[in-house]
């Protein structure tokens, strides 16, 4: 790890002032960034500690919920409003990492965590376009069982690792940002970039731009949402495939649906094709399968990750079956 300067921000203005310094990075719980620095994937000259900024979780005037970026993942999952009104989010967080890590990791940090692609991490021994643009990608022809099948490009097939973001993507979350030039908000689904030919540019954030919070809109159907994660180990493992879903059914017909996938995309993958296919359809496995297949039609499998297409279809069907069991 390269030596760096450390500063603790007391408020947002303080943070963005430090944060616009060259080679400065914001530091949340450190559960990803400290590891990346130790591996020399990240080599910031300065860290701006933003863990003492807003961490409150409170209702909004429009009936939603606003979560401060410094809120620890565990406290979000534990919050009564999240458990009651957005259970998919609680379940997604609880399916990620370990209790210790969830106690450290912040919401802002979780949004910006980076891929666990082994070639991305292997600074000394492997080529990676995400780490070093133009270098080449050793994953495309290499060991890619864990890699993405959606949103990939010929330069990068790295999977976005977050569970929490998958639920946020499904639940129409909005991300609040701050910069020296002012504040703005974005849908969570607009935050992350698919790699294209610049996999090194992972988000639409401007240099020095800070995530200050996440807002969940009022979304009644989310009260019956869930998150299912399939992994190689029963706990403490990244997803092979995960599904966040919420469905509203009336008289056996899907009125509205939110669906997002994890483990299969280069970004937290909102499954809009599947949603469109499903709206207005009769509840049941045939419709669920058509919807899932519509989303996965664009999949580009590689040598070892082809199973994710079928696994994602099955998991979507399983989750939708579970959510609509009483209506069927």
């Amino acid at each position: 790890m390269r030596r760096f300067d450390y500063a603790r921000a007391e408020d947002v203005a303080d943070a963005v002032r430090y944060g616009t310094r060259r080679d400065a990075l914001y530091l949340g719980g450190g559960t990803n960034l400290v590891d990346l620095m130790r591996e020399t994937v990240a080599q910031p000259a300065a860290l701006v500690d933003v863990t003492r900024l807003a961490s409150t979780i409170e209702g909004t005037e429009t009936g939603g919920l606003r979560i401060g970026a410094a809120a620890r993942n565990s406290l979000v999952a534990e919050h009564p409003a999240v458990r009651q009104r957005y259970p998919a989010l609680a379940r997604a967080i609880l399916a990620g990492a370990s209790a210790q890590i969830r106690n450290m990791a912040t919401v802002g940090g979780n949004l910006l965590q980076r891929t666990r692609c082994a070639y991305f991490y292997d600074v000394e021994g492997s080529r990676c376009n995400r780490r070093s643009p133009g270098q080449g990608c050793d994953a495309i022809e290499g060991l890619n069982r864990g890699h993405a099948v959606l949103g990939t490009s010929s330069s990068c097939i790295a999977t976005h690792p977050s569970d929490m973001c998958v639920a946020l993507a499904a639940l129409d979350a909005v991300v609040h940002l701050a910069h020296e030039d002012g504040e703005r908000s974005l849908p969570l689904t607009a935050l992350h970039r698919v790699p294209g030919d610049r996999p090194d540019i992972e988000t639409v954030l401007r240099p020095g731009e800070l995530v200050t919070g996440v807002e969940l809109p009022r979304l009644p159907l989310a009260a019956r949402s869930t998150y299912r994660k399939v992994r190689d180990r029963a706990s403490y493992a990244f997803a092979l495939v995960s599904v966040a879903a919420a469905v509203e059914v009336e008289a056996g017909i899907v009125q509205d649906v939110r669906l997002a996938l994890g483990g299969v995309g280069t970004t937290p993958w909102r499954a809009r094709h599947a949603e469109e296919t499903l709206r207005g359809q009769a509840v049941g496995e045939p419709a669920f399968r058509r919807a899932a297949q519509a989303e996965l039609a664009a999949a580009v499998p590689r040598a070892h990750n082809g199973f994710k297409v079928e696994l994602a279809v099955r998991t979507v069907i399983g989750v939708l079956n579970e959510l609509t069991r009483e209506e069927a």
Binding site: R8, L27, G30, V34, D35, L47, Q100, I101, N103, M104
Partner: peptide, 13 residues
């Protein structure tokens, strides 16, 4: 009182 991983924690934080 909260359990954390001290290996990923920078002491200065």
């Amino acid at each position: 009182g909260a359990r954390i991983l001290s290996c990923l924690a920078l002491a200065v934080q």
